[in-house]
């Protein structure tokens, strides 16, 4: 392999890492929002993302989005529309189930309360995965867009030797992800809702004294977190095929990103997810593809052991 080829490979992996990393970052933001506000680790988060993928798929095919917006941009419109739909789903599931074991009624509990929350979301994960299997079947599906087989070319640099290709489909997905992240950041920092969510995260009891309905704030945060990750899922579905158990493949990516970003820090989670994407893509330069996920798990374990407070953002874990 010549030097320009090596450089080209590295640059190409870097670009691929940024593209997939921006989607991972979006997923992680959804999980981090839930963890940051509620201190609940949502075990079913990958499966909500899977629901987002199917939602985008059916919105695209069944709701006639492909007719309205065409096959090129329709999938992205569908992915974004999956957000509000999954918000309702997340909000509803929180209200019906998760609020039974979380929120103000468990403020006084320490160890035992969290235990119940973790296990409850595990139950939800099992129902979502297997329910999806019943509803959608086990055949992998994908949302096809003609953009996924065309690319923008950057370069050539270094004379004529090095050029980098950006897949159009992934490029647009990354752009949309950036816009969504920016929107979320604005809402969290400047809106009354965002401030109320942060206040509830900082100190739920004091937030109650301010007149903030912390249980409702939790429901909104849960719905929002699910919706954000669902959009990420919808965007991911434009390039990767998916199936009912796809959530498991991403759930560790999300945990790793969130822990890396400093549990609960929202922008930290984005950079954490981005880092995971880069590591994953760069690892393909040296590792067989099947071990990509193992590389992520090993990295995740290393982060948890060496620096559980994360690399980005502040330490927010109480006690």
């Amino acid at each position: 392999m010549t030097a320009p080829q090596i450089i080209e490979n590295i640059l190409q992996a870097l670009v691929a890492g940024v593209l997939v990393g921006s989607l991972y970052g979006l997923m992680c933001v959804g999980l981090a929002l839930i963890f940051g506000v509620m201190r609940v680790i949502n075990f079913a988060h990958g499966d909500f993302m899977m629901l987002g993928m199917y939602a985008a798929y059916y919105i695209f095919t069944a709701l006639g989005i492909h007719v309205l917006f065409g096959n090129g941009f329709g999938p992205y419109v569908a992915a974004v529309l999956a957000g509000p739909l999954l918000f309702v789903v997340g909000y509803g599931i929180h209200r019906a189930l998760i609020s039974q074991v979380t929120g103000t009624r468990t403020l006084g509990l320490d160890g035992e309360g969290h235990y119940a929350q973790l296990v409850l979301t595990l139950g939800i994960a099992l129902i979502l995965q297997n329910g999806a299997l019943i509803a959608f079947g086990s055949m992998p599906v994908s949302i096809r867009t003609p953009l996924s087989i065309s690319a923008w070319e950057l370069g050539p640099f270094w004379g004529d030797f090095v050029s980098v290709f950006i897949n159009k489909s992934r490029g647009i997905a990354a752009l949309i992800s950036g816009v969504v992240i920016a929107g979320i950041a604005l809402v969290i920092t400047h809106s009354r809702l965002g401030k109320a969510l942060r206040a509830s995260a900082d100190n739920p009891v004091a937030a109650t004294y301010m007149g903030i309905d912390v249980d409702r704030a939790h429901r909104v945060a849960f719905g929002l977190g699910v919706a954000i990750t669902a959009v990420a899922g919808g965007l991911l579905a434009t390039t990767y095929p998916f199936h009912p158990f796809v959530g498991l493949e991403y759930v560790i990516v999300m945990y790793a990103g969130v822990v890396l970003g400093g549990m609960g820090s929202i922008m930290g989670a984005f950079w954490g997810g981005m880092t995971i994407g880069l590591v994953q893509q760069m690892s393909t330069l040296v590792l067989p593809t099947q071990l990509q996920n193992t590389a992520i798990f090993v990295m995740f374990l290393l982060i948890v052991f060496l620096r559980p407070q994360g690399f980005f953002g502040r330490v927010v874990e109480r006690t």
Partner: peptide, 19 residues
């Protein structure tokens, strides 16, 4: 005290004025 540590002073006051 129990102020909201990650919110700014102004944001804390705004939260006070949530009613």
């Amino acid at each position: 005290r129990q102020v909201f540590p990650s919110l700014t002073v102004m944001e804390n006051l705004e939260m006070g004025a949530y009613t």
